[in-house]
């Protein structure tokens, strides 16, 4: 073969091209993990974290999807847990997860940096608020549809939502940074 004399300069390609479907695949795999943890996770000191919400919060923090995409992510998150969960109230999830995912996206994409000293606490904040949003939606629907008494709602359900949200905040914060480091690596070296 004929050799061209001079090697031409490297041209830089559009950086964002990589991974048109990365948001799809990372969400898929994290939601799969969320579903199995939902199945096998022991309760830790009486609290069972909501792994599904924690996982899509991580996915959203990593990929920063559009609002339409996060609405879909929420629906898929709810749908995955319908066939795999032990017992639940599917309609509650079908509404509460999209709300959680959208709130998370709004926080991730449209707020300023949140730091505590040198520590970036945005993952924890998004994890906490999204879980509260999703959880409150869920229990409110449960209350309205099943016409539960207000006292059950106030003294039994709301405290659970906030405890789970605290656990989720910790999970999101701990898992986000190692995941982010790996997520940003490009290529094989």
């Amino acid at each position: 073969m004929e050799l061209e004399k001079n090697e031409s300069e490297l041209t830089i390609h559009d950086k964002n091209k990589g991974g048109r479907y990365r948001w799809v695949t990372i969400t898929t795999l994290l939601l799969a993990i969320g579903a199995i943890l939902h199945l096998v996770s022991p309760n830790i000191g009486g609290v069972t974290p909501n792994w599904t919400i924690a996982m899509y919060c991580i996915a959203i923090n990593l990929t920063k999807p559009t609002l339409k995409q996060s609405f879909g992510i929420g629906l898929v998150a709810a749908a995955i847990n319908i066939p795999t969960s032990k017992s639940a109230f599917p309609y509650g999830n079908l509404l509460s997860e999209p709300i959680g995912a959208i709130i998370c996206t709004l926080l991730v994409c449209h707020t300023f940096n949140m730091t505590l000293g040198k520590l970036n606490i945005k993952p924890a904040v998004t994890g906490f608020i999204s879980t509260v949003a999703s959880g409150m939606t869920f229990i409110t629907i449960l209350k309205v549809v099943l016409s539960l008494p207000l006292s059950v709602y106030l003294y039994a359900m709301i405290p659970v939502v906030f405890t789970v949200a605290a656990a989720n905040a910790a999970i999101t914060q701990i898992l986000y940074f190692p995941a982010k480091k790996l997520f940003d690596l490009k290529g094989d070296q």
């Binding site: 061209e4 090697e7 031409s8 390609h13 950086k15 964002n16 091209k17 490009k186 290529g187 094989d188």
Partner: peptide
């Protein structure tokens, strides 16, 4: 080796971006 494979498949540069010549 892997990068050469990916270049033939077009993933380099279409998926990975980066920079190329030739």
């Amino acid at each position: 080796k892997t990068t050469l494979c990916l270049a033939v498949a077009g993933a380099v540069p279409h998926y990975f971006g980066g920079s190329s010549a030739g």
